[in-house]
Structure formats: structure tokens, C-alpha cells
Nucleic acid binder design. Structure first.
Length: 293
DNA sequence: AAGCGAACCTGGCTGC
DNA sequence: TGCAGCCAGGTTCGCT
């Protein structure tokens, strides 16, 4: 499911419920997500107030009132839903109403406002961790992470500088989270199509000309921003089981121009070619070999 | 050192 | 209907 626009959509759904609320109960039906949950996870959460819910790349960060941060990653198939809790505030902290569990519910966080935030993840590629805000930049997940594509650092100059001398294909370079953090398979395919660049082109081929970033680099940088912003406005993309925190669906998938459209006609007027699917570093790439050079 | 494939895990779809 | 095989939005690890 979740690339940056989906995670941002989830954040916007959860923020009004979580911000300012106190955690009054935690239930784990599964202690092993991608990594085991940290020791004493429930106890360290219970009683804490959530001061803010933010996002860094594809990570959700809940700042707690004791200086800890609850770090959440949705992996491939993770989702959150909000449910009304029937357990009265003040009841046993570890009490849990199993009758409402759905398959693959792993973590339920009960809040002082009477609602529960439930993490569900069939493939368990997602994970949660609890770390100190002061040390977050040194944490192994954030130590080596690239820039925010929607921040003001992403421009042609940035792409030119980090792609310099790179022999790897553009597709792989854009998926590299240590350069730009937040793009995934869908939005890389869409951004390359809209900037008319071949996913197979070497990343190092779009850098500088006469000491300035190439038009290709400038184009790609601005298209990445546009695609992500459009996707966020649309509530992200809903494929398979992904849904928003209120159960509704994102609709950006209806505007995909190449992703998952193998064999369909290229959307460019009068192009007439068919969208191809190839495999690059183990992932499907969808593109039009006529429009993307 | 960069770059690639495999691995992690479950479920859904396709084709025999 | 059953079953094997393939595919999936991410990230890390280990081997060239």
C-alpha cells in the first residue's frame, strides 16, 4: 500500500483523533511484526499523552509527553482504522474486547477520547518502535535517510548532485530512500512517465550541462512534487485492501497513466504505443518506450 | 563500493 | 474444487 502520499493520508486521518489524547490501554495480538516490538512496549505507552503526529518519509511519528516517539511504518500491507471503544475509561488497562478483532489486527491503542486506533497488517512487513526524540536522527532508520521530496531541497540541482556518476537506472536511483525518502514503485513509474524519461536511462545521464542541471533533471524534480501533491489531494491510491482510517478509499489509482497498465494504450494523444512492463532490481516497471527516452 | 537478487510473510488471482 | 505458481504499495541483508 503505502508510499508517501498514502502515509500522509493516514497521518491526516489519525491526527485529529490522536493529537492531545492520552493512551489508556494497549493490546498486542502479535508481538512480532517485521521486528519484535521493543521490551515493555505497552507499559511505556500507557499513561502518555500524544502531543503531535507527524511524518518523515514513509514513517509516522507520534511524539509523546515524556520525550519518546512512537515510530510506525506500514510496510507493504499495513493500515490503521479508528473504532469506538466500548471499554469505559478507567477500566483495566489491558482489557481488550476480542469480539471486534479482525484478522491481522496486531496492535490496538485505546485513547482517552473513547476511540481506539487499530493497526492491521497481513504481511507483517510493517513495524513499530519507541525511541527517544533526542536520539532520533542517529536512529538506524533515520541515520541514512534522504530528503523529503515535498520539502524545498528537491530541485534539479539536488538531483544532478546525487545522481552524478551513478550507473544505476533512474528507476532504481529514485527508489533509493537514502537519496529521496518517500517515493515507491507507483510514484516513480508515474513521475518518470510524466517527465518523459526512460526508467532504464542511467541516473548519471541527467546531471549537468555547461555547469547547470539539465532540463531533464529540472523536469523530473518538479514532476515528482506535482505527482505526490496530486496523490495526496486524492487521498492516496487504493490498491487491493488499502483504505483510509475511516474506511473510505483513495482515488488516485484512477489517474495512473502507466502503473499496472501493461498492454493498455499509452495515454499520450496520438502515441498509439502500448504500455510495457519490465523488471528492474526485482520490481515491476511500467512505461511507454515511445514517450520515455 | 555500488548494485543486484533474495529474503521477510500472507493473500489474491490465474491457469491447469 | 484444488492446487501450484506468480504477483503485490517496502526495506534489509549478503553476495558479487
Amino acid at each position: 500500500m503505502p508510499e508517501l502520499p498514502e502515509v500522509e493520508t493516514v497521518r491526516r486521518g489519525l491526527a485529529p483523533v490522536m493529537t492531545g489524547a492520552r493512551i489508556i490501554g494497549v493490546n498486542l495480538s502479535q508481538k512480532n511484526l517485521r521486528f519484535p516490538l521493543p521490551e515493555g512496549f505497552e507499559k511505556r505507552l500507557i499513561g502518555r499523552r500524544i502531543d503531535a503526529l507527524s511524518r518523515r518519509a514513509k514513517y509516522l511519528l507520534a511524539d509523546l509527553d515524556n520525550g519518546d516517539v512512537l515510530v510506525m511504518h506500514l510496510g507493504m500491507s499495513g493500515s490503521f482504522r479508528i473504532a469506538q471503544s466500548d471499554i469505559p475509561v478507567g477500566e483495566d488497562l489491558f482489557r481488550h474486547d476480542r469480539s471486534k478483532d479482525e484478522k491481522h489486527d496486531h496492535v490496538t491503542i485505546r485513547l482517552s477520547d473513547g476511540q481506539s486506533v487499530i493497526y492491521n497488517d497481513p504481511r507483517r512487513f510493517g513495524f513499530m518502535d519507541l525511541i527517544s526524540r533526542a536520539n532520533i536522527a542517529q536512529h538506524r532508520m533515520f541515520r541514512n535517510i534522504g530528503i523529503e521530496p515535498l520539502g524545498n531541497q528537491l530541485d534539479g540541482e539536488f538531483l544532478a548532485s546525487v545522481f552524478q556518476n551513478k550507473m544505476t537506472p533512474l528507476k532504481s536511483a529514485l527508489l533509493d530512500q537514502s537519496l529521496i525518502a518517500g517515493l515507491g514503485n507507483i510514484y516513480v513509474c508515474e513521475a518518470l512517465f510524466r517527465s518523459r524519461l526512460s526508467p532504464r536511462r542511467k541516473a548519471g545521464s541527467i546531471v549537468y550541462k555547461n555547469g547547470k542541471p539539465t532540463d531533464r533533471a529540472e523536469r523530473l524534480a518538479s514532476v515528482i512534487r506535482i505527482v505526490l501533491e496530486e496523490a495526496i489531494s486524492a487521498g492516496g491510491s487504493t490498491l487491493r485492501d488499502h483504505q483510509l482510517t475511516d474506511g473510505s478509499l483513495g482515488y488516485f489509482q484512477h489517474t495512473f497513466r502507466v502503473y499496472d497498465r501493461e498492454g493498455q494504450v499509452c495515454p499520450t494523444t496520438s502515441c498509439g504505443q502500448v504500455i510495457k512492463r519490465i523488471v528492474q532490481s526485482g520490481r515491476s516497471t511500467f512505461f511507454c518506450s515511445n514517450c520515455q527516452k
